[in-house]
């Protein structure tokens, strides 16, 4: 069965490449590099988990992909090169802290912000907002003040505010941080069923295990390994060498 899935993917790979990164390097002046000569390919429909200890370069990688940094090397998303600073609604970025993202007086205003910036007509904007709110299950919150929502609600509204742009690639930075168990479960269900290509960085390895079909381990500015989540995360030696722990569900009794 697994073989079959892999084969299927191999066919897909030839056709649809979502991200291609060549020789990506980034460092702040007078500091050791955060990313060094990174090469990476990600294919349409993949759900990729990026794991690694604090300071490994996960966030820098994300910021580079969405064009917020100007690193050395080449990044293209859906075969188009990334131009730092340009608006690219095909890529969505969900921030680690929803408070960084939500700034409008109502949920509706926040979710419509992106589509409005894309220059869509009011009807299209309204339609997209409804759709995004429906997908994330927060339609009932649309007139509320984002600031007063619970942590779990804020998380879903932040995701809706990105999905309303209908991105084909969504980057999630630590999406389950600060969520209670129920909200986390809702997030996992949502991510499992979402249609976009997903890149997800997290310390919540159980979440990665449940959502992702591929895992990339980054440490000390390099990709250490790249492959099947279960194989990588159950390798105790590998995990411990990179300051990580084998998730509880993969531990041998």
């Amino acid at each position: 069965m697994k073989e079959l899935i892999r084969e299927n993917k191999a066919i897909k790979k030839v056709e649809l490449r979502a991200i291609k990164i060549d020789n990506l390097s980034f460092s702040y002046p007078q500091n050791s590099p955060i990313l060094a000569n990174l090469n990476l390919e990600i294919f349409t429909g993949e759900k990729v988990g990026i794991i690694g200890p604090n300071g490994a370069g996960k966030t820098t990688l994300f910021l580079s992909i969405c064009g917020l940094l100007s690193p050395l090397g080449h990044i293209s998303v859906f075969e188009k090169p990334i131009i730092p600073g340009a608006f690219c609604p095909e890529i969505g970025f969900v921030f680690q802290n929803p408070d960084d993202q939500l700034f409008s007086p109502t949920v509706w205003d926040d979710v419509s912000f992106g589509p409005e910036n894309m220059g869509l007509s009011p009807q299209e904007v309204a339609q997209r907002v409804e759709e995004a709110l429906g997908l994330t299950g927060v339609s009932r919150l649309k007139d509320r003040i984002p600031h007063q929502l619970s942590g779990g609600e804020k998380c879903m509204v932040a995701i809706a505010s990105v999905l309303s742009m209908q991105p084909k690639l969504v980057l999630y930075d630590e999406p389950s941080a600060n969520l209670d168990l129920k909200a986390r479960r809702r997030l996992i269900n949502f991510l499992q069923h979402s249609q976009e290509t997903i890149l997800l960085s997290s310390h919540d390895l159980e979440l990665v295990l449940e959502v992702c079909d591929r895992v990339i381990l980054i440490n000390q500015s390099k990709i250490i390994t790249d492959g099947n989540p279960q194989e990588i995360m159950s390798n105790q030696e590998l995990m411990e060498n990179n300051n990580l722990e084998v998730p509880y569900s993969l531990k041998e009794n």
Partner: peptide
């Protein structure tokens, strides 16, 4: 830093 992150977030959603 909070302001920088918020400005990034609105920029990524196309605010110019």
């Amino acid at each position: 830093e909070m302001l920088t992150r918020m400005q990034r977030a609105i920029k990524l959603r196309g605010f110019q």
